[in-house]
Every structure is written in structure tokens, then in C-alpha cells.
Computed example of a mutant assay.
Amino acid sequence: MRALLSTAPGGPETLVLDELPDPMAGAGQVVVAVKACAINYPDVLIIEDKYQFKPQRPFAPGGEIAGVVDSVGDGVTEWQVGDRVIGMVGHGGLVEKVVVEAAKLYKLPDGRSFAEGAALLLTYATTIHALLDRGHLKQGHTMLVLGAAGGVGLAAIELGKAFGARVVAAVSSDEKAAAAKQAGADDTILYARAPFDRDQSKALAEQFKSAGGKAGYDVIYDPVGGDYAEPAVRSIGWEGRYLVVGFPAGIPKLPLNLTLLKSCDVCGVFWGAFAARDPRANAAHIDHLFRLWAEGKIAPRVTETFAFEDGGHAIAKMAARAAIGKLVVNVAA
């Protein structure tokens, strides 16, 4: 089978399309013939050895896949050859066939494309865990979403609206603001590209505060980090929750006096660890997502697809923070 492999630490240009032996399903496992693989920011980091997990090389990036069951291992009764499925693999998705634990697969609903299916789990499961378990988002709350036109940003807008919040989307361009509005954002903020000096940081904080209203934000969803974090926290409301989701703009350092003055919480969001530690709660969240998807309240926005051999281009676009919505690699027809 073909696989897009990382053979040495580096950027997307270091990836090599090569041949590997077809995998075999062990007990409790399924081999999935991959049709589509979504690209996410961890794929940028993992090939540079900057992610929290460092797989042994050679390995394929790509954490979420959609495809067709190719074979099943001993003891697997819930899946049959030919079933359409989606699943999270952490890494290893940019291959023609991949082994997945049977319990970690979900049925791709009829009428949904493989590209849509590949784009669902990571962004929406991360976000529903963030908003409900860590942010305690409720009807009538006000939420600020940074990086709101990316995959997790658009998921946060949609889920925030589904849960009855007022959502303010912060983005870096008019095109991204339009995407955020289309996803349901009540208001948008255009911010400049970091780094910021002290005056620029204060000005951004005032932008956030103006859009958030006098009471400030109940929840701030931050998948960006960097110099955007402190202005965001300055706009948080009393006992608000600042959700730490990711750091494509760099790992921020916050003045902790702000948390005292606002009596607010800084909450880490690590969906992968949550799913491993509490699989039952995670499964309930994913069931909830499928219901919202069926009701039309959420919909993965696949804005660009790439041929298998061009998978590195998708990762490069993600690294440049140029993506709107989800980027998907079509591994097979």
C-alpha cells in the first residue's frame, strides 16, 4: 500500500510517498481502507517532533480518517467488510490502509461524504468537551472565539449557538469573518497579525471588551495562543473560563494577577487524554454530535481537498494559518 511518510524531522516538504506492506487486523481490530484524511494543526507539529507524542519513524501523519472496512480481526462483531466508518488514529492516517481498534470507530451516516466524515471528530469532539466539561457553557452565556475561521473555531461557533450562547468571533481577515458569520457568529472582530507591542495589546483588549459587553465573556475559546491570549483574558467576565486549546501563534505567558482580579479560571483542554480516561463520557459527547449533525445544527466545512500525493501541501497551508474550515486529503476514490 502507499503511505505518505515522515522519515526525518522537518516540514511538509520532507514527506515521502512510499510503499509499505498491507497491515493485518489483530484481535479486536479492524483494517480500514482509507478514503479521506483530514489535516489538523497537530500534523504540523508531529512531523517536526514538536508534538507531545513522538512516533517512531517512519510514520504517516494524519489523525482522523474516513473509509471502508477492509477486514476484521478475531472477536470483532460490530463491523463487517464494506461498512463506511470514521475514526481517530492519532497519527498514521495518510495511508491507503490503517489498523484501528474496533471500539474507536463510528458509522459514517448515509448521505455523508468521506470528506465530511473525516472532518468531524477531532474538531467537534475537542470543542464539545471544551465547552461543556471545561467551559460549562450555558444558554444565555457570551463566548469569544479566537481563530474563529479554522476547523475548531467554526466548530466552536456552531456548538456555541447550538447551546444557546451569544458568540463573538475573532479573525484576521474579511474572508474569515464572512466564514464565521456563515457559521452563525453574532458578531465578528478583525485583529492584526501578532506580535503586538504593549499599545497594540491594549488596543486589542479594548476591541474584545467592546464586543463582549459590560459583563465580559463567560467563556473564551482560544485555539491560537501567543500574543492574543492576554488581551482576551483582559476581556473575560467575573468567574469566566478561559479555555486553552492550542498554540499555533506560540505558547503565551499570562499575568496571573488578571485571574485574581476577574476571579476567572484558566482551563486546559486535552481531548485525547479526556477520551482515553473517560471513554463513556466521550462516547456520549460523540452521540450528541451525531444528533446535532442530523439536525443540521453542525456541519463540517471542508473548504479544500488535496490529492494523496499533495498531502504535504495541505499540511503547509495549515502551518501558514491560511486555512478556513477543514482541509482534507483524498487518499482514494
Score class of each variant (00 low, 15 high):
Q200T: 13
H129N: 14
G311N: 01
F59M: 08
P61A: 09
A249E: 09
D197T: 09
G140W: 03
P300L: 04
V98W: 00
G213N: 04
K50N: 06
L17S: 08
G160E: 04
A211S: 12
G216L: 08
L327T: 03
A27Q: 13
L17K: 04
P300M: 02
V167E: 06
C267T: 11
E78P: 02
W79Q: 07
F274S: 02
V269I: 04
P300A: 01
N282A: 15
Q207G: 10
Y124W: 14
G164P: 12
A148V: 13
P21D: 12
W79P: 08
A33D: 11
G311Q: 10
G311R: 02
N257R: 14
K262Y: 13
G11F: 01
Y124L: 10
E206C: 01
E304K: 15
A155L: 09
I315K: 03
A155P: 05
G246C: 00
G150D: 10
T188N: 02
E309C: 01
T188P: 01
A178F: 01
F196C: 12
K297I: 05
K253N: 14
G28A: 07
P231L: 07
S172R: 08
V244H: 03
G246L: 04
V68A: 06
I324C: 10
N330G: 07
A178S: 14
G82F: 13
W271Q: 00
I298Q: 03
F114V: 07
F114D: 00
E96N: 06
A192F: 05
K176R: 12
C264W: 05
G82D: 14
G67A: 12
K97C: 08
K104M: 09
K107C: 10
K54M: 05
L122I: 15
G311I: 00
D83G: 11
A205R: 01
E175H: 08
E101F: 09
D278Q: 14
V171D: 01
T14N: 14
A36C: 11
G246I: 00
V244R: 04
F208A: 01
V167P: 02
D22R: 09
G212H: 05
K176W: 04
P61G: 02
A332D: 14
L17A: 10
I220F: 02
K297L: 12
P58A: 11
T259A: 13
G268F: 03
W293P: 04
E64L: 03
V98C: 06
F208M: 03
E48N: 13
E78S: 15
A60S: 15
E64N: 07
N40C: 01
S172Q: 07
E13G: 10
L108D: 00
H129C: 09
A281N: 12
E101W: 11
G87C: 08
L5F: 12
A284L: 15
G250W: 08
S235R: 04
D70K: 11
S235M: 02
F290M: 13
D22W: 09
G160Y: 00
H129T: 13
R301T: 12
A169E: 00
W271S: 03
